[in-house]
Design a protein around this nucleic acid. Sequence first.
DNA 1: ATTATCTTGTTGCATCTGCAACAAGAATAC
DNA 2: GTATTCTTGTTGCAGATGCAACAAGATAAT
Lengths: 210, 210
Amino acid sequence: MKNNFNIKNFSNNLISYCEKIQIKSFEKNEIITTYIVNRNQICIVLEGSADLMRYDFNGNQMIVERFHQFDVFGEIFYQINTNNELFVLAKEKTKILIFNYDIFEKKCKKNCKFHEELVLGLPNLVLSKVSDLNLRIELLSKKTIRDKLITYFKIISEKNFNKTFTLPLSLTDLADYLSIDRSAMMRELKTLKSEGFIKKSDKNKITLLS
Amino acid sequence: MKNNFNIKNFSNNLISYCEKIQIKSFEKNEIITTYIVNRNQICIVLEGSADLMRYDFNGNQMIVERFHQFDVFGEIFYQINTNNELFVLAKEKTKILIFNYDIFEKKCKKNCKFHEELVLGLPNLVLSKVSDLNLRIELLSKKTIRDKLITYFKIISEKNFNKTFTLPLSLTDLADYLSIDRSAMMRELKTLKSEGFIKKSDKNKITLLS
DNA sequence: ATTATCTTGTTGCATCTGCAACAAGAATAC
DNA sequence: GTATTCTTGTTGCAGATGCAACAAGATAAT
């Protein structure tokens, strides 16, 4: 976006550690962090993926949010405590960049370039996080499954500059993302297909026709 | 939150203008900004309120987001262009702080304190924006109107440290915020009342009983 | 003071959607 | 190579929800 910070290069070039920034590795199903203790912690996924999980008041466990490479997360983004237990679970072997929000205010002793780059680069990551959240809100705000799907497909299609595209999510995950029942989604998908709005080749390859 | 930047004091003390930061006033129904031209513009509501509006593909106009005092907005938060025309409309007499994202990189000529404070303070505003968005996503993700309402009430109640609270929104606006049909919401409200989950005195005063 | 507008409140109805339950194919683990 | 898990696909059904339409009270505008 606006400046040329690139988290990928950044993490690749990370040789000499900054004392305020850690990189930790997690095995599948390990807890990366809980959202009770680490109020000011910010994390960035370097490799792998993780789920933010909640035990809600009925005791069911659900996925609140999914984090993939270069996503930013942390309790600092969840100021309002809904009394739910939130924690982040590694979905696979995962590498996480961990630091505290105070890196904005306090320079590290070495005054390292690494630290400085992160401070400059983080805003962009947060901005793109906001964008993602806004996008999801747009989708969740649509009242029907049909509208959710059509809007989602349009966006993916525009992103790929192509009417035909492979979904970046499994259909199961897509239903979760749109917060709709999977079977109801499959039904609507079938209707959209039969009405000629979309074509569905393979499993997750879709062509917008309208 | 983490540092003691306070946008309220900040804007009150704004006497000598920074060349990179503007304050503009708008009358009711004036267009504050469009989301086509001003890609890197960031705005903060100082007084009044405004709506982010969209003309969607069916031609209907709808409110995408509502901004109140000290809310941050701008096209920069909407990276993915859905080909919709987005613009921000003043709902009343409104005062807006306007600047460009590049204030992060480029200091102004005067090197003024004002500029510096904003750069330090903006991250907090954005973080609380992210919090708000996450909260809304949590609500929108609930599958039933009942769950949306109960979760919303719990949050407001916890925020106010009180089982009894006055809704910060009109019921009409609440339905919009939760993206549900108002009449269906009224129906559910009545059910919740009759089942003893809530008490509803006045119009917008609610007591959680469960 | 009198409109005009906005908000709350209600109902009937059609249909959309979640849920449960199941089956088959694909991918992964051991 | 076989078992296990995950994903896609399908259906019936009951209940939830959106929509349309209306009425009355509250606010705001002139």
